[in-house]
Structures are given as C-alpha cells and as structure tokens.
C-alpha cells in the first residue's frame, strides 16, 4: 500500500433519517448517543464515520443487521444523500456532483452487487449484463461482445438467453457480479453479495470471488454480517455498531487486539490461529538476530503449529516474500494463541 491518495475517503460522515435531519444534526451535541438520538425521533444510520480505502484494497465492512453498513456503502455511491461530512471519490467530493456527473461517474467507475441481486426480471442474462453498457449508449455489438466476455468470466457461458427466474440463486448472483463488472469499474461495491445463498454455494462463491479479485485487482468495499467471511476476504475490516465504526484494522490485529468489548464478542469464538499471520506477531529485532530456519510472513499460526510445538528456539526469524528478515516470532506468544495465555 503506497502512499498515493485514497480512492474513497469519507470524513465525519453522518446519515440521519427523520423529519428534518440536517437541522437536527447542526444542533446535535457531540456526546449524543444512538439511543438518545432515537428518542429524538431520528435514526442515526451512519454516525460520524471516517474511513479511507486505498487503491487495490479490499475493505470489508462488518456489522449485524441495522448497524448501518449497507447505508454507509450507499453513501459512498450516493444512492443516499449524506446528512453531514464529506465523501471523496478520487479526491472529488461526490456531494458536489450534478446529476449528470454522478450518472457519468457510475457509468465509468463504479459497480455494485446487491444482496437480493437486483436483476431486471424482464431481461435475459445477456441483456441484464449489458444493461449498464446500454445505459451509457454503447454500440450494440460492442456491448454484446463485452457482456459475453464477463458472462464467461463468471462461468455462466451458455446461459446468456435465460431469464433470471430460470436461474438458481448462485447463478443469479453471478449475473449480478457480471453486470457490475461489465463497465470495468475501478471501484467495486458488494452489499452482502452472498448472504442470500446456501452455505455451500456461499463458500464456492467466495472462492470464485477471490479468484476474480486476484485477476482484476479492484478497489473493493465489501459488506457482510458474517465475521468468518470478513476474515476470509478482507485486507482490512471495519466493524460497525449502531452506525459508528467500532474498529477498523487488519484481520490479524482485530483478532489479537479487539478495540472494544463489542468487537471482542465476535473474536472470542474465532480460532485465532487460522487468522493470525506470522508477520503480525513478528517483534522488532533490537539487535539480536534469531537464527535457524525462518518462517514465512504470510503463514498462519495454524500452518506453523507443528513447527511451533517441536521447535526449541525462543524466537524464530520471520521473512517476507523477498527473503528479508522482518522480525522475530516469540514462540511462547505464538503458542499462547492456541492455548490461551492464562
């Protein structure tokens, strides 16, 4: 992650639902809590959220239903008008865009996948996928060609002429994914894309999704209520509760250091060894260099378990992909992850 400017930056974003939200927000004291606001007759769907999403990064926003995660992503795409704060996309304040500019932005840069698919029931798979291209007035042959390309990419070849109702849930969502990719967006929003699917299909779709992401390297905002899914996919996770972000960090750090009691509730049941990588436990070297066979920075503790038990060294060298030592792994600390520290 180099230090170029973030693709999406939101600063102190608020989204209130109620009779006259702007006025209310202006008069809102800083310490007003979610329940107090509710008593005033407003729903604080998004409360003072500041986040940055970098190019090529996958940010997963995790929260239970009603936590405001879906609202937040709709604020990023300006499907909802925010009440306060600002959302910058590629440095541009999207609230300042005219309708025409906004439509142009969506036609060129953004794609979105919906939980309930949002397929147009009267159009075939091909027509659904080509829909965004049609909207921007692309030539008929071009859009057919491009649509067939993405349909192939998501593995729906041969179903181009089917109508959505003739497809299974997993297939319908593949259409949704293909449609969102048709315009080759830079930014890809996925709003609980796999929540409506059976567990087995969900797993399959997650693998498929990781494959696509390796291929395409988009900037992604992914919404889920499933903590496992978040851990599996995310570069960083933002955990939301009552409209506010409780913690935003890498999966390793969230598991190792939950910032709040609420976050800790999620991490408690998680098998940490499968999440934590050697890199995040590596300590600075302070002069001494651990010796012997190194461990890879991107190996999970679970993968290292046998080594950790059998090895006798106190500290193991951790090396990155290029073979450079980036720190030392305290064996005892690593084993504590399996056994509990007390």
């Amino acid at each position: 992650m180099n230090r170029e400017s973030p693709v999406i930056a939101c600063k102190h974003v608020w989204k209130l639902f109620g009779p006259s939200p702007r006025k209310y927000l202006a008069s809102l004291p800083a310490d007003r809590r979610f329940a107090d606001i509710q008593k005033d007759g407003y729903i604080a769907a998004v409360r003072d959220v500041s986040l940055e999403i970098n190019r090529g990064e996958m940010l997963v926003i995790m929260g239970l239903s009603g936590s405001g995660k879906s609202t937040l992503v709709r604020c990023f795409a300006r499907l909802l008008e925010i009440t306060g704060g600002e959302v910058l996309v590629d440095g541009q304040d999207i609230m300042s865009l005219t309708e025409k500019q906004l439509i142009e932005l969506r036609r060129r840069k953004m794609g979105m996948v919906f939980q309930s698919f949002g397929l147009l029931p009267h159009r075939t798979v091909l027509q659904n996928v080509a829909f965004p291209l049609e909207m921007r007035g692309q030539d008929k042959h071009d859009r057919r060609e491009r649509a067939l390309e993405v349909i192939k990419l998501v593995g729906l070849e041969g179903r181009e002429e089917y109508f959505p109702r003739e497809l299974s849930g997993g297939q319908q969502q593949r259409v949704g994914i293909a449609r969102s990719l048709a315009i080759e967006p830079d930014i890809w929003f996925l709003d609980e894309p796999f929540s409506a699917l059976d567990p087995l299909i969900r797993r399959e779709m997650q693998d498929e999704f990781l494959r696509l992401q390796n291929l395409l390297q988009k900037t992604i905002v992914f919404i889920t209520h499933d903590f496992d899914e978040a851990l599996r996919l995310a570069d960083r996770i933002a955990i939301m509760k009552d409209g506010a972000v409780e913690q935003c960090d890498t999966p390793d750090k969230i598991v190792l250091n939950p910032a709040t009691e609420y976050v800790a509730k999620f991490t408690r049941e998680i098998e940490k060894s499968r999440v934590v990588h050697a890199a995040s436990l590596a300590r600075p070297l302070n002069g001494q260099t651990p010796t012997g066979k190194p461990v890879a920075a991107d190996a999970t503790m679970h993968e290292l378990a046998r080594l950790l038990v059998n090895d006798t060294r106190d500290s193991l060298p951790v090396v990155d992909a290029k073979g450079l030592i980036i720190g030392g792994l305290d064996r005892q600390e690593a084993l504590d992850l399996f056994l509990g520290s007390d």
Partner: peptide, 11 residues
C-alpha cells in the same frame, strides 16, 4: 435493489 441497480448502472 432493482432500483439501485438501475442507478448504479448509470441510468
């Protein structure tokens, strides 16, 4: 979701 997908398609 259908309406939003329309918006996100730049209609």
């Amino acid at each position: 979701s259908v309406v939003e997908s329309g918006h996100m398609s730049g209609a």
